[in-house]
Computed example of a mutant assay.
Amino acid sequence: MIFEDNVTIVSIGKMQIDEVVDYVRSVRRHLFPMLDHDVLPRDLCAFEETYIKDKDGVFLVARDSNDNIIGTIGMLKYDGRFTDHFNFGDSSVTEVVKLFVEPHWRRRGLASYLVQCLKDIAAERDVQNLYMHTHPFLPGAEVFWAKQSFNNLISSVHDGLETIHMVMQIES
């Protein structure tokens, strides 16, 4: 997939896992300084199983002409951890995670393009719903996701953070 002449979007394979996990950890430290960064999230600990081997998983990386990572997005099987707030029933639900775009590349359409690539993959895989959550302290995040056709489900407090839960139905 090509975003611009000098930007490519690729699915991650085994050979890139360490580089991508290091990148995501760095971005998380910056965006979420309040988290314990010595504890790696489950998906990063089991990256290959989550994003490469699992049929519901994929992790996309945007690279510039110098092969630098300039953006990421992933999707993985939703684990139901918020069922005390809402329930999808028997619907197929995949979670969108780790949308990051380097500051220099923001407001140029790259984040929207990454989301569209993920929606296309979800449609090909017959995913019924894409779920994601964001936080009010991330500037413009809720508005961005609404522009991507995600609808608000509910807001809640999770691990001490106000969390906005959003979902979109995928047209096959």
Rank of each mutant, 00 (worst) to 15 (best):
R42G: 01
S65K: 13
Y51H: 08
H133Q: 11
I170F: 02
D56H: 15
Q148K: 06
E142T: 10
L161M: 12
R106E: 09
P41R: 12
H37R: 08
I154Y: 07
L60P: 01
N66Q: 14
H37T: 05
L40K: 02
I69G: 01
N87E: 01
D90I: 12
A146S: 14
G89S: 11
F82Y: 14
T94I: 14
L40F: 06
F100Y: 15
T94Q: 06
E162T: 10
L76N: 02
Q116V: 10
R29N: 09
L99A: 00
T72R: 03
W145E: 02
T50S: 00
L161T: 05
A123C: 07
E162D: 11
L138R: 05
S65E: 14
V20H: 02
S11G: 07
I73W: 12
H135K: 04
N68W: 10
L114T: 10
E4L: 13
Q128T: 09
F137G: 01
G74E: 08
E102H: 15
G13H: 03
V115D: 04
I2S: 03
L99F: 06
I52E: 05
A111K: 03
I164S: 01
D54P: 02
A146D: 03
P41N: 11
T8D: 07
V20P: 00
Q16P: 03
R42K: 07
E48A: 13
L60G: 02
V115L: 02
C117A: 15
T134N: 00
I170W: 10
V21T: 08
E95T: 08
V27D: 01
V61K: 05
F59C: 02
L110H: 07
S156Y: 03
G109R: 06
A62F: 09
L76M: 11
I9D: 00
I17Y: 01
E171H: 11
D36Y: 07
I12L: 10
F100N: 12
D84Y: 11
F100G: 03
V157L: 02
G160T: 10
M15E: 15
R108H: 14
H85I: 13
R28M: 13
V27G: 00
M1P: 03
S172A: 13
L31T: 14
G140Q: 08
F144M: 12
Y131A: 09
D159Y: 13
L60K: 15
I154H: 04
V143K: 14
S149G: 03
S112N: 11
S65A: 12
E162A: 10
P103Y: 13
L60W: 15
T72S: 07
I170H: 03
V101E: 01
W105A: 07
A123L: 06
Q128H: 14
K53N: 12
R81D: 07
G109H: 07
L76K: 15
G71F: 13
V157H: 00
V39R: 04
